[in-house]
Design a binder for these strands. Structure first.
Length: 273
DNA sequence: AAGGTGCCCAACCGCGGAGCA
DNA sequence: ATGCTCCGCGGTTGGGCACCT
């Protein structure tokens, strides 16, 4: 009995991805779109299982991913959403454009959990932790207990968050969308560079820029700054660097690709503004 | 400087659900 | 209705790094 492995693991590579593998995966998906993950490794010339490819793409290579720590606002959203949804990380991630479920899960386990405990909130129930008494040993260290604000203050964090029950937290164009959403698995749609929608998140720590006031402000980001930033976004540069590293001698038209994609992003953004 | 320890996060594993024949 | 395949999700692991002693 037992479940069949997701793929034939004999001869398949595991562990960290190399730049070469990243390049192959990116190149394949940008040329062909996200097709059947199981078939992708073979088609892309990768010695990986489809699952590994999907994970690498969704968690690390997708061009719309934000890098770096979650902003304070994002963190509050995660706490609020977790209170409503529990450990449904993918659902939570869907409210935070540019963030992956893995990233949020990791951030929750390494930062937010500790922070909440320190603040006297049970990260599981989102209720105030029982106050430490002399009879009961405190769950926190003495120094963290001393830093605890009253429980009522802690809970107010949640009430500051926007109501999640509508689309306010769903940022339009908050994720990269391929225009061919509804192709069947057997078809391998060709996604041309001009069909890729690269998008931004107005709630991120980058947009609006740090100088702007409230993170929940609905004001539009400065278009000139946004375009400037996007045009030179780390994600794009990452792709370009990969291509340039290993395809410098190939017949790929790196510069024209770069210009073409960048121009297309600019045009799409301008049409949205 | 060297070794030990803890943290972070990318990646893996296994399960459940959806879709299809 | 059943069994199979595939995808996506959540939990877990372990390598690399930073910090501490």
């Amino acid at each position: 009995m037992g479940r069949q492995p997701c793929c034939d693991k004999v001869g398949l590579k595991k562990g960290p991805w190399t730049t070469e593998e990243d390049k192959k995966l990116i190149d394949f998906i940008l040329s062909n779109g996200q097709c059947c993950w199981r078939a992708l490794p073979k088609l892309a010339g990768l010695l990986r299982c489809g699952k590994s490819c999907r994970l690498r793409w969704t968690n690390y290579l997708r061009p719309d991913l934000k890098r770096g720590l979650l902003s304070e606002y994002e963190e509050k959203m995660v706490i609020d959403l977790h209170a409503q949804l529990g450990n449904r990380w993918s659902k939570i991630a869907s409210h935070l454009p540019g963030r992956t479920d893995n990233e949020i899960k990791n951030h929750w386990n390494t930062h937010i959990k500790k922070k909440l405990r320190k603040m006297g909130i049970d990260p599981l129930t989102h209720q105030p932790l029982p106050p430490p008494t002399t009879a009961q040993p405190p769950q926190n260290t003495a120094e963290t207990v001393a830093e605890q604000p009253p429980a009522a203050t802690d809970i107010s964090i949640q009430s500051e968050l926007p109501d999640d029950d509508d689309d306010k937290t769903k940022i339009p164009f908050g994720s990269m969308e391929l225009l061919h959403e509804d192709f069947c698995v057997d078809e391998i749609p060709v996604i041309e560079p001009h069909e890729i929608l690269l998008t931004f998140d107005e709630n991120s720590s980058t947009y609006p820029p740090p100088s702007s006031s409230s993170p929940s402000s609905s004001s539009s980001p400065s278009s000139s700054n946004m375009l400037e930033d996007l045009a030179f976004s780390p994600a794009l540069d990452y792709y370009y660097n990969i291509w340039e590293d290993d395809f410098s001698g190939s017949d790929l038209l790196i510069d024209s690709d770069r210009e073409f994609i960048r121009d297309n992003i600019m045009n799409q953004l301008l049409s949205c503004l």
